[in-house]
Write a protein that binds this DNA or RNA. Sequence first.
DNA 1: CCAGGACACGTTTTT
DNA 2: CGTGTCCTGG
Length: 741
Amino acid sequence: MDVSYLLDGLNTAQRDAVSAPAGSQLILAGAGSGKTRVLVHRMAWLIQVEQMSPYSIMAVTFTNKAAREMRSRLDELFSATKQPINSRAMWVGTFHGIAHRLLKAHWQDANLPQNFQILDSDDQLRLIKRVYQALNIDDEKWPQKQAQYYINGQKDEGLRPQHIQETADPYVRTMLQIYRAYEADCQRGGMVDFAEILLRAHELWLHKPHILEHYRNRFPFVLVDEFQDTNSVQYAWLRMLAGKESFVTAVGDDDQSIYGWRGAKIENIQRFTQDFSNVQTVRLEQNYRSTGNILKAANGVIVNNNGRLGKKLWTEDVAGELISLYAAYNEQDEARFIVERIQEWVRKGNSNNSCAILYRSNAQSRVLEEALLREGIAYRIYGGQRFYDRIEIKNAIAYMRLISNCHDDAGFERVINTPTRGVGGKTVDDIRLFAREQGCSLWHAAEQMLANRVFSPRAGNAVQSFLNIVVQLTRDSENQALDFIAQQVLEHTGLLVFHQNEKGEKGQARGENLQELITACRAFNPDTNSTEGEIENDEDLSPLQQFLDTAALDAGETQADEFEDAVQLMTLHSAKGLEFPLVFMAGTEEGLFPHKMSGDDPERLEEERRLCYVGITRAMQKLFITYAETRRLYGNETYNNVSRFVKEIPSDCIQEVRLKAAVTRPVSFHRKPNAQILRKGMSDVGEDTGFNLGQRVQHTVFGEGVIVHFEGQGPTARVQINFKQVGSKWLVMQYAKLEAI
DNA sequence: CCAGGACACGTTTTT
DNA sequence: CGTGTCCTGG
């Protein structure tokens, strides 16, 4: 059989990885080294050459996006080469998606109700709030967010309350008490949070060896993407699945491990070769993305980390342009500089969406947005609220959850008074109390209380009308198409009108989103995944239930405007895996990046450095690094040094755009307490300067130029001028001796 | 129910 | 400083 198509166009290391004899592999894939391609070709190789059935291959990712990408690349490969294979035959999914599937198939063995519900972090926090009420715990003293963090952290480590050592420490005692009660509530209500899905899937195998055995036999090959991001439970789960017989292909990059703070264990990738037998290690170091200078900079930074598995990116590409470093006067100036560079870039015929502005923290985006807005440049911010996280969507989904299962307490609580129908907090409290006493669902409690005429007439009517709506919807939804159900929900609950009537642009946007939900329902295909060789299958799950599960496990991409030609703004974290011809890394200042919260801990500092490495390696052609010498943060001015990471970049691949010596600016400047304009940062006219924006001026030394910006007032007022000869400069009005032309 | 004021908070985020 | 949340008074 001719399988050359699987190796054609691959470099030596990639071929080694793809064509390795059956066994476990550690593929250390540097940024831009063709990782996904190798993964996909390896899977095809296993099928074509090793004669593995597609049914015996599992591929695990972290995000739904990555899973979809893998699926589509597989199908692309198969269809281009006319292989009669469909990616649907394989188990390709996220850790959570696959674990959820296991729990669905083995709900009894996992000690769950068949229709168990998934709690997102929002639902989880609400539940924790209820636990606080029940246990009468002071949320001033023990913030609920902290309890949430604690519970998830323990679960990520595979720890149940009974595994945790009881101590005298009041913090641990309190958290443990909350954890116990929370867990009991979840179990009673048939609810699982995200961490629980993984933990319980692990325990399922731990406690039911025959089930584990089945999956071990079924999946002799498991491939894992972004291995450096696995947490303890995920690692344990993989080890258990692999056993002694199966092979695991772990693909990852220790240098891009940036999620330690949420439980990812970089050690996992380092331990892999010891814990799995006969591991072949392949390094993918040839980079197909960036110019030589960009890679040189990236290598120069990351080499300062200890304990790396070791990898050095190289390219056949040209050295390319030098990296530009700009020392901005403040964050306004930084934003302005970036916007001007983008305008130049676009003027040369490039598109907006080939540019990305990366920053360490979301707070930085505002100033950048303002600058882009001012110049009328379209932009898109990544990682905002996602589709299924929106309040209006969650409300609609809550009704759908109640249709699917009226004992869904999280859904019940969310919409019993949405749209408002006169069920007040007191009434809900009463229902909650009754349910707790009876150990029943809120729905059941409400029914009982109505039958016993516990409510005041008014509250009773309101509750009854809520129950009626859900009952009616449930009846109307039987055997109906998903989009029809959604439509019914929006109409009969009054949700659509309710949200549309919200004031401002909000109403319109929310209405549109709800319409979008109907579209999503129409487009939804119930999982027709092959069930060959499975102990049980999920054919008996209603499309509604399947949709709800999908919605819970896939927050939905920020769909709108995806194809608009807009400059991309995002944090360094969300930039991982992406690439852009032109990249700006903004705010590279000590205290901000590396962030002061990570400053003193060497481990966290290394993670910040990896983040910097990720940032640099996003750039394909040109990278600008900027920092602000003065930055207004939380209302007060901070003076920062350039980030240590910038200093780690080899000096021969970076150039300063504007030499500090060429800049005139006050050594110290005193803020006038009442200078509103000054605090705002800038104005359109030069107030009392006698000059206007856009005015042409003459300077005794620099010659002719145009005023592009003002800042401040009175004697300390500064002005930015684009000089014909010497370019852009900041000058202090007082000393500049400008003449209008 | 809602507006408006007091108040807390301020790294990164997927599932 | 700007934002989001909580609470109170109308």
